[in-house]
Amino acid sequence: MAYLINIPTFSDTRGNLTVLDEAIPFDIKRLFYIYGVDSSARGGHRHHKTVQAAICIQGRCTIVNDDGEKTEIFKMDSPHKCLILETKDWHVMKNFTPDAILLVLASTSFDATDYIFDPYEHKE
Rank of each mutant, 00 (worst) to 15 (best):
M93S: 07
K123M: 13
S39T: 05
D67A: 01
R60D: 10
T108K: 15
F96H: 09
P98Q: 11
G59W: 07
C82G: 03
F96A: 04
Y35F: 12
L105N: 00
L102V: 07
H45T: 01
I28Y: 06
T50D: 00
Q52R: 10
F96K: 11
G43A: 09
I101R: 13
T87F: 02
W90K: 04
S109N: 13
V51W: 00
E86I: 00
K123L: 14
T9N: 14
K75F: 05
S107M: 01
S109M: 12
Q52I: 01
E121R: 07
D67Y: 00
G44Y: 07
E124H: 09
D27H: 09
Y35E: 14
D114N: 02
E86V: 00
I34N: 13
F117V: 14
D21C: 09
I63L: 15
T113H: 05
V19T: 12
P8F: 05
N6S: 03
N65S: 15
A54H: 12
E86S: 10
Y120H: 05
F74L: 09
S109V: 14
L103Y: 06
E72L: 09
A100D: 03
I28C: 12
R60H: 12
Y33W: 15
S39A: 09
G68S: 01
F10Q: 06
I84Y: 00
S78Y: 06
V104S: 13
A23W: 05
H48R: 15
P79Q: 04
F110Y: 15
D77C: 09
M76C: 11
G43S: 08
D21R: 14
L4W: 06
T71V: 05
P79D: 11
D12M: 06
T18Q: 05
T87H: 02
V37H: 08
I55R: 03
S40H: 14
K81Q: 13
Y3C: 01
N65F: 08
P119N: 04
P98V: 08
V64I: 15
M93C: 08
K75R: 13
L4V: 14
I63T: 12
C61V: 07
D27T: 08
I7D: 05
A53T: 02
A112T: 10
T87M: 00
G68W: 02
I24Y: 04
L20N: 10
I101F: 06
T9P: 03
T87S: 01
D114G: 07
A54T: 03
V92C: 06
L20T: 15
M76Y: 08
A100N: 06
A106D: 04
